[in-house]
């Protein structure tokens, strides 16, 4: 990972800001998001780091991180954010950048486990495919 002038000025950051409607520069790294995230333990890039990376233009790194597929959009982070940054929206934007590329789908019907197929409520399936596939 390296921060360079062109990265900091990257168009990707602007695209993320546009798609998410969020200002990543507003974050002052208090970490309240990461501290409260219920699924943070399995993340490779913590929520506050997502914003830090975005601030620094390290979007490529973000596009390859696991965190995008771990965030449950539960909005706990943004309900506590003192800077009014809706991180699930930022993560959603990054996810869309991946999904919109060919082959970017994260979840395929064939991936579902037997249990899920049998028992999962429609609500869960609809949600998952709306998040993880295009």
């Amino acid at each position: 990972m390296k921060i360079t002038t062109d990265k900091v000025n990257s168009n990707l950051v602007r695209e993320v800001e546009e798609v998410s409607g969020q200002k990543v520069s507003a974050c002052f790294q208090c970490g309240k998001c990461s501290g409260g995230c219920p699924v943070v333990l399995t993340m490779d890039v913590l929520p506050h780091q997502v914003l830090r990376y975005a601030q620094l233009g390290l979007v490529d790194e973000l596009l390859h991180c696991k965190t995008l597929w771990i965030c449950a959009s539960c909005q706990t982070c943004d309900s506590r954010c003192p800077r009014n940054v809706d991180i699930p929206k930022v993560i959603e934007a990054l996810r869309l950048l991946v999904l919109r590329n060919k082959g970017g789908n994260y979840l395929h019907p064939n991936d579902l486990s037997e249990k899920v197929r049998r028992n999962a409520p429609q609500q869960g399936l609809v949600s998952a495919f709306r998040k993880f596939a295009k």
Partner: peptide, 14 residues
């Protein structure tokens, strides 16, 4: 606290 929501469809561990 979140139960894991739709993540359970794809990522059961979480």
């Amino acid at each position: 606290e979140c139960c894991g929501s739709y993540l359970s469809m794809a990522n059961e561990d979480i």
